[in-house]
Design a binder for these strands. Sequence first.
DNA 1: TAGTTTCCTGCAAACGTTTGCACTCCGAAA
DNA 2: TTTCGGAGTGCAAACGTTTGCAGGAAACTA
Lengths: 362, 362
Amino acid sequence: MTATTFPVKGFFVPATIRDVARESGVHISTVSRTFSAPHLVNPETRSRVLACAEHLGYRPNRAARALITGRTHNIGLIVADIANPFFPPLIKAAESQARQRDYHIFVTDTNEDASVEEGLVRALAKQVDGVLLCSPRMSNSLIEQLSREVPLVVVNRQLTGLPTVVMDVAQGARLAIDHLSRLGHRQIALVAGPRGSWTSREIRRSAMSAARANDADLAVIGPNQPTEDGGMAVAEQIVRAGVTAVLAYNDLMAIGLIEGLSILGRNVPEDISVVGIDDIALSRLTRPKLTTVATPTAAAGRAAVDMLLAHGDDRRTTAQITLQTELVIRDSTGPGPGPHSHADPGGVVATAPEEVASYAKE
Amino acid sequence: MTATTFPVKGFFVPATIRDVARESGVHISTVSRTFSAPHLVNPETRSRVLACAEHLGYRPNRAARALITGRTHNIGLIVADIANPFFPPLIKAAESQARQRDYHIFVTDTNEDASVEEGLVRALAKQVDGVLLCSPRMSNSLIEQLSREVPLVVVNRQLTGLPTVVMDVAQGARLAIDHLSRLGHRQIALVAGPRGSWTSREIRRSAMSAARANDADLAVIGPNQPTEDGGMAVAEQIVRAGVTAVLAYNDLMAIGLIEGLSILGRNVPEDISVVGIDDIALSRLTRPKLTTVATPTAAAGRAAVDMLLAHGDDRRTTAQITLQTELVIRDSTGPGPGPHSHADPGGVVATAPEEVASYAKE
DNA sequence: TAGTTTCCTGCAAACGTTTGCACTCCGAAA
DNA sequence: TTTCGGAGTGCAAACGTTTGCAGGAAACTA
């Protein structure tokens, strides 16, 4: 590391509305209106004010404006782990949706830590018009309490009384287990996600019932860190469990697990089949390419923004949205020891087009 | 998608400093001091005020506070593409460094779009105490102009007169080319990054001079989108160029390229060697594991926060920091057709420990 | 012509804080 | 006793905006 030091020129003192008023010879209220209600001011005056503003480099102070209007035109977006490739598509979709409505998104990361989460919501509270809380790890009651301090939309957790958007992971897990069963697998493991994850509980519940329906055994392993390392760490348990197929909480864990299995001399899908959840971009690039449950993350991001912005000031009602998932079969799953049916339709679930239209996956 | 609607309870009207003052029978200034300068108020009064505040659920309004103090305790962090795994470690490091100093980081994404970038800086300007501008795509002069509206630290671009932190990618590129040369490669391609990227220019400059020094030919291909798809897209050109080795602008492109090459029937490293830059987590997980130039992203995030917060109010001086890079040799590079030396020391560059101590990679 | 409307602008009070100043106590020093 | 100083508190002005209200001028209507 090398470091050098330079002198630097000072900052402009930022021009305020008052400076513009003085320079253009009108009252500050006229300047204010020039920016926030242009139709109320004489075109001639308006252009003079605009010229002065331009000349002075004036920009309205959004914080001061927010103080009085109560609207910041910012939205907070809290995610559990920004390094998880699951989130970026959601974030980007939310950003572009917000931008269209002249809002900005501020993203923060909680490091999968429930206590950090609470602090962040509170810190954001007065600086944004609402918070998109993605994959929260805190308790329901705390979320409810926070939702009275700032408008909240919860993503990846169902919670009565609050606007939520969730993926139908239950359906996804069922599809995955069905797929594995059809391939002849009877001893299946479920690698669970982190403690506090609603999604993980959903997956577990649904996978267990699907396994039962298919006469298969399901061994649940976890909770675990939802990362590559977390997946790699359970490889040994998987081998010891003697299963021939695994459903992982997410793709990251699935990929880590495959790597861990290969270190232990087990090949995927020859020795063990692995299914992930999320269909992150990466899952098309690893070898073998991952069979996984695709979740419409971009649609979720857009929906969350819309829900937050939907009810302007009347917070009378709140919607709950569930987005369809689908199974994407690639190379990480293969035939198991049991008898397998050849009737597998490919696993891609048909979704009613008109229902998903507004939040369709691109 | 399914949607249901529920009634929802109204919001608390948030308690203000005035409510607390009334309830506890003191003047608002005393309440204010209870929070911002506790030592100035009688312990007895203080605890009474705190009790009332707690009871009313009062939280100081940070925006109002910022209006008068001029400090928001927020830092903006702008990245080109949040989906690029290069950034999350940087973001997380910056966040934890900021949190230690009682600051919050707001992250936004520009979609690699220079014009979005400008708007974001301006929108952030009055709501944060400074902006960390990572891998900017806009012009130097625009950056300089913006730096007068809000304190700026630029990451991944060197710019006189402004605080900057860059990786020594020039050294990294040189190490990579040297490595390939030693393996016997004489026909090498450089897959360039996006237009407007300082890093890409640096890499190119350094790689060309290193190639010349090694008597190798260097074909430059680009500019390109710095993504998997961008890498995949150049696979054909690479094959046509007839090179035996490639240095890619970043790991993502390298991984995409390897995939693209495999589709064209070329194996890495047997047919073509590929070196990436960044050492993202993913590069240990793809097959073959990627040989790459490791850049200390976490250190960069910490350094950037420190630089922004360093000079309290005197913006007299500004530092420029360059962080060391090192070559990590894995499985995507192999012997080329030419004579190769066996003296390759492994390519790991020694860094002067005391210099990097404060920003050491973990 | 008087009355009414419309358009534009100014005035001043807010929004929720912080902070310099002044004031009152009260105990210690002289 | 007086003087001083410090601790604790209140007062009021700021920070940079928005916005309801009122007034004046011009443009209609009758």
